[in-house]
Simulated scan of single mutants.
Amino acid sequence: MIMDRLYNEALKSPVCVGLDTKIDFLPQYLKDKDWSAGEKITAFNKKIVDATADIAACYKMQIACYEALGLDGMKAYSETVRYVRKSGKIAIGDAKRGDITSTAAQYAKGHFEGDFEVDILTVNAYMGEDAVSPYFPYIENNEKGLFVLLHTSNPSSRNFQELKLEKDGQKLYEAVGDKITEWGKPYIGESGYSAVGAVVGLTFPEEFEALQDQCPSTFFLVPGYGAQGGTGKDIANIFKKSRCAVINSSRGLITAHQKAETPCETEGFEALIREKTLAMKEDILKWL
């Protein structure tokens, strides 16, 4: 199971590097190249993977950053996920897909086969099981996994996710947590975690801790570290119970060369990103 592999990687380092790359994030020497935007982004991403592969559990690519550049951007997405996987690391496609069964089946084929093949995909289950079940054959037969949106890190997630249900007083996201556990039962690996995982924001640490107890076989992808305010201390209580997550940081890591005390706009910029990634790893693990 792919989540066994991710769990074992996360024991060494819980850091997920988010390659949610925009042209603005690139050092000036790459911006100045006589290349397409997609080629520049691909070169940037490869430098980061090379510099951090030994201290990151996995890499997450937010597909919107690439879709925004059209065909050129999608070529960069394809080359990036292929490079991550060729480097022996786990590639998470952050696409948050969610649609009726026939459409979801096409999304599953598009992201678990071919040019955009990743190891794990983020999906939106708020249309119900129809939006998730077409991915299950890939989990069963092709070593793939899912991270289902559960309690997300954005401030307005409370608008809907925390609404109480009339039936039993559960909050909506808690009911979704029960469903994720149910869907994941057939796909629990040797680690005790299912290939059907969940996305929970670090911006709500107390709710996350409760979900850890509610969903003990669920492995989590956790956004919200760094630029969104989350810290290693916020994850401490969760990790003292179990190492059930990878923690993502995107712009907080991949813009380190721009925000350093001495910014670097030339070749070698990736050393500052490596330094920031290592600092994140140490910030999380020091609380254990």
Rank of each mutant, 00 (worst) to 15 (best):
L172N: 12
T42P: 02
H111Y: 11
L221Y: 12
K33R: 09
E182R: 05
N154C: 07
V199E: 09
Y83A: 10
I100Y: 12
A175T: 14
V132H: 13
N124R: 09
K167Q: 11
A256L: 06
L146V: 08
P263S: 05
D20T: 06
G224Y: 06
F220V: 01
Y126N: 02
V132Y: 05
Y83K: 03
G226L: 03
K281F: 04
K171Y: 01
G232I: 11
N142K: 10
G93V: 09
W287V: 07
A10W: 00
Q228R: 09
D115K: 14
A125H: 04
E162S: 13
N45C: 12
P263Y: 09
A131I: 05
A56M: 02
E267K: 01
A227K: 07
V81H: 08
V246R: 01
I41N: 04
E9S: 06
L11N: 04
L165Y: 02
G230M: 08
A236S: 15
P27E: 05
Y135Q: 10
P27T: 13
G93I: 12
Q161N: 13
V15K: 08
I273S: 03
G128N: 14
I90K: 05
V196L: 15
A227E: 09
E270D: 14
K144D: 08
G268I: 10
G169I: 08
G70P: 06
V196C: 14
Q170L: 15
A260H: 06
V118H: 10
K40F: 03
E39S: 14
T101S: 13
A131K: 12
S242D: 12
L221D: 05
E67Q: 12
G110L: 01
G268F: 13
Q258R: 13
E140C: 04
L71N: 13
E174W: 03
S157R: 10
M3S: 04
G224C: 06
A108N: 02
G93N: 13
L19I: 10
Q161R: 12
S78Y: 11
S36C: 13
K46A: 14
G232E: 09
A95P: 03
T203S: 15
G252A: 04
A56D: 06
Y173K: 08
A260Y: 01
D54C: 00
D130E: 14
S194K: 14
W287R: 11
